[in-house]
């Protein structure tokens, strides 16, 4: 029951800000109560147990709400998960703690969905949290011989690049680290899970690599960017952009739990369009800034922790990084429901 999670720790998978702080203490107390209730119920429950790490993040909450109808959901996060449905069991533990490992071993989940990754490059502990947490989780998964291990990675790891071809397949190398060291840990996470996939044939391992996720419940970089009224762009560049709606990502995650599919899948929403047109659909005005100036300002702001957006990530506004989502369609049976326009307009 440990937690010191600060608000910004999971910038990318954050939650509506308003309630959060107030719920923090309340959530802590209620966990123990609910847990004891659960244990009596559990005996009759024959559904599979799914462990969701990062359950209290924006995406985690949506996922838990979707899964709890079909599975017994066990959430782990340092943050509280207020207003959760009654049958979701949530534990506020740091994934790096021994107690977390012990808890998982006791609960023996059949499937693990690993969302608990810090994407915020400003967070000092991202490195330790991500690598150590994931390594321990994989160790438990190996010991328990879980049926399924699902990891949410990102298509951004391919790296926007002037020389990359259009529509990258899952086999394309993860080149993002070359320009932005901040994503290096995230690439190593993806690689760790990949090697788990090869070493543990008994477990069906699925790595999902979604493109930029946007949605009303998210406070990640792309969602925040498109919520701006005046959207900064780079003068002279107008790349093709792919987006995927949060509900489609949740849909893909739950599909990944079905027996059968294993491997790496790009998750792409319907369609792609030039950045400038996405901005005009939002009713915002674009605000072109010369690239070097933009970089300089952002670098300075990043150093003084005024932004969480490192300047190498500006390449997303400069070069296209289109990925091919047909494998997920074919093998996962995933078809996005929201079109690009709908996803954008749903941002509130």
């Amino acid at each position: 029951m440990v937690t010191t999670a600060s608000d910004d720790d999971k910038a990318k998978k954050a939650k509506p800000a308003s309630k959060k702080r107030a719920d923090k203490t309340a959530g802590k107390k209620s966990t123990t109560k609910k847990k004891s209730k659960k244990t009596t119920k559990k005996k009759r429950d024959t559904r599979e147990t799914v462990l969701v790490t990062g359950a209290a993040g924006g995406l985690g909450r949506l996922l838990c709400r979707m899964l709890h109808r079909k599975y017994k959901v066990l959430g782990i996060d340092r943050r509280p998960f207020p207003d959760r449905p009654k049958d979701i069991e949530h534990h506020r533990i740091d994934l790096r703690r021994k107690s977390a490992t012990q808890l998982i071993r006791k609960k023996k989940p059949d499937c693990i969905i690993h969302l608990g990754v810090i994407h915020n490059p400003q967070s000092g502990e991202a490195f330790s949290f991500n690598l150590k947490g994931t390594a321990q989780l994989l160790e438990v998964a190996e010991r328990l011989q879980v049926r399924k291990f699902v990891f949410l990675s990102s298509a951004n790891l391919y790296g926007p690049n002037a020389t990359s071809s259009s529509f990258l397949s899952e086999e394309s190398p993860l080149l993002a680290a070359a320009s932005s060291p901040e994503v290096r840990d995230l690439i190593s996470l993806d690689m760790m899970v990949q090697s788990f996939f090869w070493k543990q044939p008994a477990t069906e391992t699925v790595i999902l690599r979604p493109v930029h996720i946007v949605g009303p419940h998210l406070r990640n970089a792309p969602s925040k960017y498109f919520r701006l009224k005046r959207i900064p762009t780079i003068l002279g560049f107008d790349p093709m952009v792919q987006l995927v709606h949060e509900s489609d990502v949740v849909g893909a995650l739950s599909r990944a739990l079905e027996p059968g599919p294993r491997g790496v899948f790009n998750v792409v929403g319907r369609g792609q369009a030039p950045l400038s047109r996405l901005i005009s659909v939002r009713g915002a005005t674009s605000f072109p800034v010369p690239g070097p100036l933009f970089e300089g300002v952002l670098d300075r702001m990043f150093r003084y922790k005024m932004t969480k957006f490192p300047s190498p990530e500006l390449d997303h506004l400069r070069y296209s990084c289109l990925v091919d989502g047909t494998r997920a369609e074919r093998e996962l049976g995933f078809t996005p429901e929201r079109s690009l326009k709908e996803s954008l307009l749903d941002l509130e």
Binding site: A162, T163, S165, S166, F167, S169, L235, G236, F237, D238, P239, M240, P274, G291, Y319, S320
Partner: peptide
């Protein structure tokens, strides 16, 4: 390398030109 040039890069793309690559 045309994709690195400002203005030219997206003008080319909008006019139907693509970066040379067998998969494309």
């Amino acid at each position: 390398w045309s994709a690195e040039l400002p203005f030219v890069s997206h003008l080319f793309v909008r006019a139907g030109q693509v970066v040379g690559d067998p998969s494309t």
